[in-house]
Write a protein that binds this DNA or RNA. Structure first.
Lengths: 158, 158
DNA sequence: ATAAAAGTGAAACAAAATTGCACAAAAGCC
DNA sequence: GGCTTTTGTGCAATTTTGTTTCACTTTTAT
């Protein structure tokens, strides 16, 4: 865990909202020179605090309007089965997010597809074709109330 | 839904992976001038195809190592209750993602916190304090197998 | 108290994005 | 078909942004 001061936090807050914000503007907003901002951003990238920089694409505007949640329950928790199943989910483009969890389910997936028919085909491919999967439970997203990868930076202990 | 040609798709693929890729490089890779790339990106931003541009912050490096899934079941589906509950989730920083879903649950939440203790305090604040919530079911993420907001662009019909 | 290390602002510099312009290809329109 | 309009392109000039340099200040450790 890296040590970050209030300037770093302030920079991260801005960047996780809009990473095209000019460093001059950031500097002005938080009371630092552009060069200082530049160095801090560079450092945080190198440290891995800033993991990556991405554009978020509107799934509806490109014909992928269906978002689904899938809870997957495995037949067994054997590491071998778990790992191979992780690999499948990781490499399936329609699987936007995949988490290995404790609790009632083993995996939680978020899947984005053009139509329910595509989802049906997908289930045949990745669920019914996998003998380690006992069963799965699907929920359809009706409203994407809040979508992002933002991390709360408000109450960071300095 | 906007109409996108193969160049647009190629640009989006690159940008949703790394939006700091120089437009010259993009142009070279897909066979277009930097200016053409620039105009297409500008257009797609204006159209909302590119929704936003963000830095992804490593939750562990800033002291937020706990990721949780929460299924929320409501007492009633009255629009009034649903809407006010949406508003709470939307404005709670620890709630990274919130989806209103059909199926066994009403809401699916992804929550990111420093410790389980913080989660306990959060549940008191946003779940136990809300009379419309019948109950909730928590799953703890052990492995973030795949985390992102990428949309599959492979089989786009042109 | 002093030396080393780390961080800073201002200015010079380099690299990228953006704009203007002339031209070519595709889309309506008689 | 021929014509115009629209849309998109590449190249070059311009502007903006990011990066490096350097002298100076603050902090840290001895």
């Amino acid at each position: 865990m890296e040590k970050l001061d209030r300037f770093d936090i302030a920079i991260l807050k801005i960047l996780q909202h809009d990473n095209f914000t000019p460093q001059r503007d950031i500097g002005q907003k938080i009371g630092l020179s552009a060069a200082a901002v530049q160095r801090r951003v560079k450092r945080m990238k190198a440290e891995g605090v800033i993991q990556r920089n991405v554009s978020v694409i509107n799934r509806e505007k490109i014909g992928r309007p269906i978002t689904l949640f899938v809870e997957v329950i495995m037949e067994s928790e054997k590491a071998e089965f778990i790992d191979s199943t992780k690999a499948i989910f990781r490499t399936t483009p329609e699987v936007q997010q995949c988490y290995y969890v404790t609790g009632d389910a083993d995996f939680m997936l978020i899947i984005v597809v053009p139509t329910m028919h595509d989802y049906e085909l997908l289930t045949r491919r990745i669920f019914f074709g996998n003998n380690y999967i006992k069963h799965f439970r699907t929920m359809v997203a009706m409203d994407l109330v809040k979508v992002g990868l933002d991390v709360s930076l408000d109450a960071i202990v300095l």
